[in-house]
Design a binder for these strands. Structure first.
Lengths: 246, 246
DNA sequence: CCACATATGTGAGGTAACGCACTTAAGTCT
DNA sequence: AGACTTAAGTGCGTTACCTCACATATGTGG
């Protein structure tokens, strides 16, 4: 739809100079990681890029470092909703590990950055080998299911400004940066509300000095405040994502 | 909350005399099934029974035959929402297979019937053995994630009567029976709407001669009509659940 | 600098669902 | 039979969000 080319300032606003690494891969024993390394390739993901469409053969699986991938579902051709968010705590393309070659959701790059890419064939091989990667992918699967479940509840019950706050916090956690390019139009597809609804919600957050935004660039001014404004879902999802990594 | 004891007429209204079996276990090669059999025990699940609470240690994993288990999430102490439904196409307690000992959702028996029960310890052993069960549980994980994702979208966008129609169809598919005991109060917790909302939606369906209900007993009168009334989400979820079983 | 595209703000009218307070109906218990 | 409990229907004011139709910015390219 709008896979528009976007700014190449993906590193702008990075919180610190430390290179972000995929935390899931980072849990692996050195030996196992060394074995996987030849199969991993670092790639740049750009905002708006589609990694795979629903039903498409998934060619690669992506372990984000400082990028973010949104898993989104379509409804009736016009509306969209993000059902899951994947950052350095996880992997996009889990279906392949599960022995399925496609996914019913679309994987859309929602935050520019780098990711480690592995071919689906290599992932399938790894899926048939017990060990560290196998185990951590299992635990991540559970974590992702928990995230999607909690988001489902959140999308059903909570007000748009609270959900926007949660979403910004989750993005901030994964992107590392406190400033990122995102239009309200884009956000409306993530939250499953009209653009005008995002406008209103964003105004509320800006009025509270929690964020600042202008023409597709959002800056987080007050994380604490955002956490207070967001629903408990943020903490619940974060807790689940943090603990599975041990 | 209301774990009220319920009627023992769980077999009433069964569509046909054929004993329902868990389709997931049914895909296993005879040899593997024979190996698992000693670890499986047939148990009766009764409407309202809680198999595990959020955070609880999960002791057993359940492969429903003709029973149904709802996975539900709590919001702010008062509201509930079903995030997933498990029948003979799946298993309740997948977290154990994923190497996690508890789940953030509550597993509530939503349709009485039998299930095959396996201890968590046995499941953990099986999880570390590649083979048929391992593979099918992988594919089921993907299917469940798809279901939860699609439900999330559905809960966000679709009208209560369409969602009720979908829910009744999904229950009908899993329970086999065209008649089942369920109060509107119970349904309101599944759909995440007020009891009055269920009352209104159910009236609409009854006015269209699609269902009949009275004091906690619902009868499906016109499946075709229900399918027309429900949103496309029903077909999408069903397709995903049917194909993963090959 | 000016046209133009894109991003955002706003207001009016509509609606599905909520919250609340009831009533009505259908079983159950003694 | 009568009291009681539980299930379900109804009406009303409120609300968050939607739909639609604009107005107003803020960049960008010729």
């Amino acid at each position: 739809m709008h896979t528009r080319s976007l700014q190449n300032d993906s590193l702008k606003g990075r919180a610190n100079g430390a290179p972000a690494v995929n935390r899931l891969l980072d849990t692996l024993p050195k030996k196992e990681y060394a074995r996987l390394l030849p199969k991993l390739k670092s790639v740049n993901l750009v905002l708006g890029e589609v990694l795979y469409e629903p039903g498409d053969l998934i060619r690669y699986v992506y372990f984000p470092n400082d990028s973010i991938v949104s898993l989104i579902s379509e409804v009736s051709g016009t509306s969209w909703l993000e059902v899951g968010m994947v950052g350095n705590e996880g992997v996009a393309g889990l279906a392949v590990f599960m022995g399925v070659s496609s996914s019913p959701t679309r994987a859309l790059v929602q935050g520019s950055g780098t990711a480690m890419r592995m071919s689906s064939a290599a992932v399938r091989t790894e899926a048939n080998r017990l060990g560290g990667l196998h185990d951590i992918l299992h635990r991540y699967s559970h974590s992702l299911l928990a995230q999607v479940s909690q988001s489902s509840v959140c999308n059903r019950f909570h007000l748009v400004d609270a959900r926007l706050a949660r979403w910004l916090l989750m993005t901030n956690d994964r992107l590392g940066a406190g400033e990122f390019p995102l239009t309200q139009e884009f956000l409306s597809n993530m939250l499953g509300v009209r653009r005008e609804g995002v406008s209103k919600a964003a105004s509320i957050l800006q009025a509270g000095k929690l964020i600042r935004y202008s023409r597709g660039l959002i800056t987080i001014l007050n994380r604490r405040g955002l956490e207070a404004k967001s629903c408990r879902c943020y903490r619940i999802i974060k807790a689940e994502a943090d603990t599975y990594l041990n």
